[in-house]
């Protein structure tokens, strides 16, 4: 560690030719940290034919953009991305690097942490800074339970963290913002790289669309058994919602992992989120608390889910849900009559 480590970097992930949402969110969070530490904020952009994307990073808060534009960086692979990021980090010695907690963000961050022999905190949901000691305070839910841990990296630089998507807020883009673009080269030949991307297939790898759903009905341990969990599906079918499950419901095999909402599943922000028989452990709520309207049903009046719910129903889901299904069915039938009248 040395005094020369200065500046905050955000790894700008490129998905389908555009900057990933989480990277823009991290520029928002990084802007705040950079202002507190009085250092520049940079986006780091690696890929093929991506130089123009710097124009997307500066309006969202970046003062600088570091770019390596090279054919070997066309699709994400650990080896060339590690070589590129490692080179830049050694040349320009940032004090903090943030990555989205996406498959690629986590992959590259883990490899760089080992390469630079520094600390990395995974899946953060809160970021702060100790200004006096220039320490990143990276907080995350711990032990799958209702507790947060703040992780520090006191003696090694850069300090690094991966951050959950949809937790931080992106800034309103300011097209008038000015920034500096620095281009570097990567001396790596395709023949040196041991992995090849044969094909990228969009969509079908994931059979469940939770991220894009307007309405999600999520069931938890409180449903009691697999049979009762069918009520979650019935309610979802009635109102055209996607089905979610908590980690407990997934572990109990009432529903497959693709449906999991929370720290180790999806982060979702639907218009309406039904949390049914869900206790509301932080592990779960980090993945859904930014939903617009949250309706919770739980037997336990002290369940923490009621702290994030817009409307809470204390009661047995097995009794309430059938009543709800019936009410919604009637309601939708009425509306249909009206719309066809």
């Amino acid at each position: 560690m040395s005094e020369e480590h200065r500046g905050i970097w955000v790894f700008a992930e490129v998905i389908d030719g555009a900057i990933a949402g989480v990277s823009l969110e991290l520029l928002g969070a990084g802007r705040e940290l950079a202002d507190k530490l009085d250092v520049p904020l940079a986006g780091v952009l690696l890929g093929e034919n991506i130089t123009h994307l710097s124009e997307q990073l500066i309006p969202y808060g970046a003062d600088e953009v570091y770019i390596i534009d090279d054919p070997v960086l066309k699709d994400y692979r650990t080896e060339p991305f590690l070589a590129g990021m490692g080179k830049l980090a050694r040349m320009y010695v940032p004090e903090i690097i943030l990555y989205g907690a996406t498959p690629n963000g986590k992959d590259i961050a883990s490899a760089i942490a080992t390469d630079l022999k520094t600390g990395l905190t995974a899946d953060c949901t809160m970021l702060g800074v100790d200004i006096e000691n220039r320490l990143l305070e990276a907080s995350r839910p711990a032990f799958g339970g209702n507790i947060m841990a703040t992780i520090l990296c006191k003696k090694h630089r850069p300090q690094m963290a991966t951050v959950r998507p949809k937790v931080m807020k992106a800034l309103q883009p300011d097209p008038a913002r000015k920034g500096m673009v620095l281009k570097e080269k990567l001396e790596m030949k395709e023949a040196e790289i041991r992995t090849k991307v044969l094909e990228i297939i969009k969509g079908p790898g994931k059979s469940v669309d939770l991220e894009g759903a307007d309405v999600i009905v999520c069931g938890g341990k409180g449903m009691g058994d697999e049979q009762a969990f069918q009520l979650i599906h019935q309610l979802a079918d009635t109102i055209g919602a996607s089905v979610g499950g908590t980690r407990d419901a997934v572990e109990a095999r009432w529903i497959s992992h693709d449906h999991q909402v929370g720290q180790t599943g999806e982060t979702v922000t639907p218009k309406i989120y039904f949390a049914i028989g869900v206790s509301g452990a932080i592990q779960h709520t980090v993945g859904m608390k930014n939903s617009e309207l949250i309706i919770a049903i739980n037997k336990d009046p002290d369940a923490p889910i009621f702290d994030v719910a817009t409307y809470g129903i204390v009661g047995d889901a097995r009794e309430t849900v059938p009543v709800m299904i019936k009410a919604f069915e009637e309601l939708l039938r009425e509306n249909e009559v009206i719309s066809h009248a």
């Binding site: 703040t150 992780i151 409307y311």
Partner: peptide, 21 residues
């Protein structure tokens, strides 16, 4: 050999609960 340390453990920030039916 571990660069990271746990600084503190804390309860997650309480959010204001909504309306109970």
């Amino acid at each position: 050999g571990s660069p990271t340390v746990v600084g503190k453990m804390f309860a997650p920030p309480k959010q204001e609960g909504g309306h109970r039916l």
